[in-house]
Design a binder for these strands. Structure first.
Length: 723
DNA sequence: TACTATTTAATTTTT
DNA sequence: TTAAATAGTA
């Protein structure tokens, strides 16, 4: 067997990982060290060299994008389409299992997946029906609680209330929430994982079947696994399965949503004799950028320890710009982007990274004014749009009448005279009789409601029945199209003023074409419609359109993970913003912020700019902030300060504060302003410069005048004469 | 029911 | 500042 194509171009460490014996392996893969490459080649190695059947392989990722990429690359490497190869996200694979084994899982065959928006609505309704004061708890808090418990693998009965009445009520809400979901055949994201775990745990035969089938488990981004995901993997691996997990403890930035880096340690305990391979050679960034990243992350305590290196160029130094305020920061970035384009570079090769989404606004304004095309990542995705979800709700209701979530969503959309009052009556009935809203509607319409409301409800039910009847047997896209028309959603959105309604109608048309191009799994047991609905929930689709244009990329550092750009700006590097105020309280939070910083820095291939503003408008208030402590963690020799046109010297650090570094003081500059400089002012007379701050037109100096005392003056207005 | 005024709070996000 | 949620009004 010629193994050349599989091992060609791999470095020693990569090769060691790819060709590891069929035993548990842990690959610690630094940023840009060829992590996906190793996974892909490992899969190819197992299939081509070890003779493992493609069906014996399970590959798990966190995002659909990563799953698609892995599948594509494996197929490209093996030069054959690998059907039957289970590659997917944790949620996608769990879903697949639940569809196959819905009976064992205790679910209706046509169960539907709800996204977090649906989930929150459901909880809000639960609050109303139980008359819970939402001042006491925000619905979000309960959502957080429920998901958190599920992520840990806990059902209500597993949670000890410890005599805390508060906690007890939360558990009670969790229980009621579960009941509603069960009754409606609704499964939220966390539930997919939890049920998939339970169905294997509680069915010896099933477990045996899957254990026999999946001898090799490949896991990507292992540091991001939460408790239930890890438990599922361990269960599946059993004592004979061979897990091959790849991750980077230094890039663990999702602790706040249940991810546990500790699983890396745990893995080595659970699978004694694990082969550990470290990938430290980086193929992405310059030496300077890597040194900076290494230096920053070395300030973290709990690490496995790893040092990125490259045999490539040292590269240019990291540029640091201290802006006067957030607008100045944006202006500076715009200027640099202009230069970048002028040098013939693609805008899409430049990325603006920030800690929180709110920061994008000022940057966007700057880009708009400069007419630089840009694209903001994040935000609403296609299948999350309200109008799309409305149309899907009709389809879901046609497919499963007991889906309360969808029922409530469209019962009065467009308005058909079923107001809050009527819905309330139905809710009460549903609750009292432990039935779905649909059944409640039927019962209530025939006796409890007055004529008008009863008619409206009956008409709604007739409409849904009619939809279900008429779309039966149609092609998927015709079903979608038909439902959109019958629902009269288009007319409803036409009434929306402005472009909004227009866009919504366009999106509905887009939904039909999405259905048209949707390819159902020929071997799938689900109906194409159910499959389409599941697809809509599990893959929310692209965010903004316009990806084809050559755009500057704007995103948070979280969403930049896994990406790389020749030119990167990390904006808003200020204490309080990054590290974020809410994370600095405990060491754990701060370390996660530092890892985020590490992620940010390692996105850059050639050029990295770090900017911070001395003054920033936040929540409508101007506030002053210090440069991020992370800046001070980058060795000086890698940093070059960019100075604005009008320059002043500035005190370097507040004495005694641990290594906080502002811009380096200069002994002088083209204006000749420096500390201790003698100056003369028209009105105040002679004085000495004590202090300086700010840059550009906003630069200010503190002067101690012999007669007039100390004053802060704006340089550009003060007209100081140097003595 | 729909529109308007007021209040409140303010990371990070994929599935 | 602003977005969202709620309360109040026509």
């Amino acid at each position: 067997m010629d193994v050349t194509p599989i091992l060609d171009g791999l470095n020693d460490a990569q090769r060691q990982a790819v060709t590891a014996p069929s035993e548990p392996a842990l690959v610690i893969a630094g940023a840009g060290s060829g992590k996906t490459r190793v996974l892909v080649h490992r899969a190819a190695w197992l299939i081509d060299v070890e003779g493992v059947s493609p069906q014996g392989l399970l590959a798990v990722t966190f995002t659909n994008k990563a799953a698609a990429e892995m599948r594509g690359r494996i197929e490209a490497l093996l030069k054959v389409p690998v059907q039957h190869l289970w590659i997917g996200t944790f949620h996608g694979l769990a879903h697949r299992m639940l569809r196959r084994h819905w009976r064992e899982a205790g679910l209706p065959q046509s169960f539907q997946i709800i996204d977090s928006d649906d989930q929150l609505r459901l909880i809000k309704r639960l609050f109303k029906s139980q008359e819970i004061d939402d001042k006491l708890w925000a619905p979000k808090e309960i959502q957080w609680f429920i998901n958190g418990q599920k992520d840990e693998g806990l059902r209500p009965q597993h949670i000890d209330d410890g005599g805390d009445p508060n906690l007890r009520q939360k558990i009670e809400l969790y229980r009621s929430y579960e009941e509603i979901c069960q009754r409606g055949g609704l499964v939220d994201f966390a539930e997919l994982l939890l049920r998939a775990h339970e169905v294997l745990r509680d069915n010896a035969e099933l477990l045996e079947h899957y254990r026999r089938r999946f001898q090799h488990l490949l896991v990507d981004e292992f540091q991001d696994t939460n408790a239930i995901q890890y438990a599922w993997l361990r269960l599946l691996a059993g004592s004979k399965g061979v897990p091959f997990v790849v991750g980077d403890d230094d890039q663990s930035i999702y602790g706040w949503r249940g991810a546990r880096v500790e699983h890396i340690e745990q893995f080595q305990k659970d699978f004694p004799g694990t082969h550990v391979v470290k990938l430290e050679q980086n193929y992405r960034s310059t030496g300077t950028i890597l040194n900076a990243a290494n230096a920053v992350i070395s300030n973290n305590g709990s690490r496995m320890g790893k040092n990125l290196w490259t045999d490539g160029a040292v590269g240019e130094s990291i540029k640091l710009y201290s802006a006067y305020n957030e607008r100045d920061e944006a202006d500076f970035i715009v200027g640099r982007l202009r230069d970048w384009s002028a040098q013939g570079n693609a805008r899409a090769d430049a990325a603006l990274l920030y800690r929180s989404n709110a920061q994008s606004r000022v940057l966007e304004e700057g880009l708009i004014n400069a007419r630089i095309p840009y694209r903001v990542y994040g935000g609403l995705r296609f299948f999350e749009r309200a109008e799309i979800k409305d149309a899907l709700a009709y389809l879901r209701l046609a497919s499963n009448r007991d889906d309360d979530s969808s029922f409530e969503r469209v019962v009065n959309k467009p308005t058909r005279g079923i107001g809050a009052r009527t819905v309330e009556i139905m809710r009460a009935y549903a609750r009292a009789n432990a039935c779905s809203m649909w059944r409640a509607a039927g019962a209530v319409a025939s006796d409890e409601l007055n004529g008008r409301a009863a008619n409206a409800v009956a008409a709604f039910m007739t409409l849904i029945e009619r939809m279900a009847r008429e779309i039966d047997g149609l092609e998927l896209h015709d079903k979608v199209d038909h439902v959109i028309h019958l629902s009269a959603l288009i007319d409803f959105f036409k009434k929306d003023k402005g472009e909004k309604g227009e866009t919504r109608i366009e999106n509905l048309a887009e939904l039909v074409s999405a259905a048209k191009s949707f390819e159902p799994d020929p071997a799938g047991e689900m109906s194409p419609l159910d499959e389409f609905l599941a697809h809509a929930a599990l893959e929310a689709g692209e965010g903004q359109a316009g990806a084809w244009e050559d755009c500057v990329q704007l995103m948070t550092m979280h969403s930049a993970k896994g990406l790389e750009f020749p030119l990167v700006f990390i904006c808003g590097m200020e204490d309080g913003l990054f590290p974020h105020q809410r994370s600095v309280a405990d060491a754990q939070g701060l370390e996660e912020e530092r890892r985020l910083c590490y992620v940010g820095i390692t996105r850059a291939m050639r050029s990295l700019y770090i900017t911070h503003a001395e003054q920033r408008r936040l929540h409508g208030m101007d506030s002053f902030s210090q440069p991020s402590r992370f800046i001070a963690e980058i060795p000086d020799e890698h940093i070059e300060e960019i100075r604005p046109r009008v320059q002043v010297a500035r005190p370097m650090r507040s004495p005694g504060v641990t290594g906080r570094r502002g811009p380096v003081p200069s002994s002088g500059n083209e204006l000749g302003i420096r500390l201790g400089q003698q100056v003369r002012h028209k009105k105040f007379g002679d004085g000495v410069i004590l202090n300086c701050e700010g840059q550009g037109a906003h630069a200010r100096v503190e002067v101690n005048f012999e007669g007039a005392g100390t004053k802060w003056l704006v340089l550009s207005y003060a007209n100081l004469d140097l003595m």
